[in-house]
């Protein structure tokens, strides 16, 4: 009798353990961003690129491009991934999602105030928020949301002697955007979101002869303009 009771109790414990697990735990799908970089619709290359500014061709050599994406959600379901894009095409894991039909993808350019308050030395060196990524602004104890650095020949003298630096950060510069996109997530199958980043659009309505440098704090209006331009840089294919 005692053995029977023990077995019954054991079965009850097992059954209650099972109940604690989420029913759909094993069926969530992994979501990846497949990122392709462009410049004015063309593949981003190491060669000089040409920007049209007020009817003048400006030759530009993109030196350093980095951008944080975070705050991902499918409809109202959040994904907790943080991505630090560089100029290389690639795939980034951004979280898990339950099966179902979704119609909208939202994301943030930069980091929300909670992520922006992270301590960078607490992350492994390969983590996007790690100090090793070179995106942490020590003086402000906050992150740069994106960096766009280039050298340009603004005056057309054939010499790339004009430095272009946009380092944008601080909580006010965080931008959120959303895309209408029908996505059907099948149980356990990876979801690939194709994201195109056209860096040309960062320079929309910028006069590089006078609007070529901001570390945010030294030119907040220009930083705001560039942060707003960042909204036009991304598109979901």
């Amino acid at each position: 009798m005692k053995i029977l009771l023990s077995l019954l109790a054991f079965a009850l414990v097992l059954s209650s353990c099972r109940k604690d697990e989420p029913d759909d735990y094993a069926t969530t799908s992994k979501v990846y961003l497949n990122v392709v970089h462009k410049f004015n619709g063309n593949p981003l290359s190491d060669n000089d690129t040409v920007v049209d500014i007020n009817g003048h061709s400006v030759f530009m050599n993109l030196v350093d491009l980095k951008m944080y994406l975070s705050g991902f959600s499918f409809d109202n379901t959040s994904l907790d991934g943080v991505v630090l894009l560089d100029a290389n095409n690639g795939q980034y894991y951004i979280g898990d999602i339950k099966p179902g039909d979704y119609s909208k993808i939202s994301l943030g350019i930069g980091l929300d105030s909670v992520l922006n308050a992270s301590d960078p030395v607490t992350f492994e060196s390969a983590h996007p928020l790690s100090y090793n990524q070179g995106m942490y602004w020590v003086w402000a104890t906050k992150y740069r949301f994106f960096k766009v650095e280039a050298t340009a020949d603004v005056d057309g003298n054939g010499v790339f002697d004009d430095g272009i630096v946009y380092h944008i950060g601080t909580n006010d510069m965080y931008r959120q955007t959303e895309f209408t996109k029908a996505i059907s997530v099948e149980s356990g199958e990876d979801v690939i979101i194709n994201l195109e980043v056209d860096w040309f659009k960062f320079f929309n309505n910028l006069d590089l002869s006078s609007e070529s440098n901001t570390h945010t704090v030294n030119d907040v209006p220009l930083a705001t303009k560039v942060a707003d331009n960042a909204l036009g840089v991304l598109s979901i294919q």
């Binding site: 301590d119 030395v121 100090y131 942490y136 020590v138 003086w139 104890t141």
Partner: peptide, 10 residues
Amino acid sequence: EKQVLIPLND
């Protein structure tokens, strides 16, 4: 902890 970084980097 974050403050420690500032004089180092300054």
